[in-house]
Simulated scan of single mutants.
Amino acid sequence: MNRLWLGACLEKADYVFLLPNVPILPSAPLDPSFLERPNAAILIELNGNHWRKILTIMAKLTAPDYHSWKTFRDDQLFDKVGMVFSCDQLDHYKGTVFIVGNTFRSAWPVDDRAQSMGYSHHAYVHFPYVWCPYLDYRQFPNVLIEALREHILER
């Protein structure tokens, strides 16, 4: 189990993404403030294009204004978004949880009451949970991002 929590804390996060992969972090000693408010540019620099895509999809899903997702990703994403890497970290969380990819599906299966969204790529929503594809454009195209975002904002 990886107890790492990045970004907005349990009490402040509007959204938490449960991810299967931990990013490479700056070398030790790691400044604790980086964990609370990671720098997106540093994460992208250390982890490459793969994590740029992950952070971009997170921003597109959660930015207050869709058209400003890039600024939101670079400057504000971690004010309202947390990232965790094991299910047990969410025991007391009350906001929206994105269960990313298939890694956690056996521990956290899609609820039978969940609404299916998408056509060739799917996400399932039963608030406060969103079961979604891995955060990569091949699995999570913009059309699904936009549909899911609209559904989340209607809530």
Rank of each mutant, 00 (worst) to 15 (best):
L25C: 04
E150S: 14
H151N: 11
Y124K: 01
E146W: 03
E45T: 14
A41V: 11
T56A: 10
I99A: 09
R105I: 06
L30E: 04
H121K: 12
R73D: 06
Y15D: 02
L55E: 05
H121M: 04
A63G: 09
W108F: 12
A59R: 00
L77E: 05
L90S: 03
D75C: 14
R105Q: 09
D112A: 13
A107Q: 13
Y93L: 06
M58L: 10
A28F: 10
T71C: 11
F72Y: 13
P32V: 00
H50M: 11
V110Q: 03
N2A: 12
T62D: 01
N49W: 15
D65Q: 15
F17K: 01
N2P: 09
P38R: 06
V97D: 05
G7P: 01
N2V: 11
D75A: 13
A107T: 12
T71D: 14
R105C: 00
L90W: 03
S86N: 13
R155E: 10
L61D: 04
G101C: 04
L6Y: 00
M58K: 00
R52L: 14
R155V: 03
L35N: 05
C132I: 00
G95F: 05
I152L: 15
V130G: 02
R138S: 15
Q76N: 13
F127N: 02
I42K: 10
A147E: 15
A8M: 00
D136H: 14
S120N: 09
A59D: 01
L18N: 02
Y137P: 06
Y129Q: 07
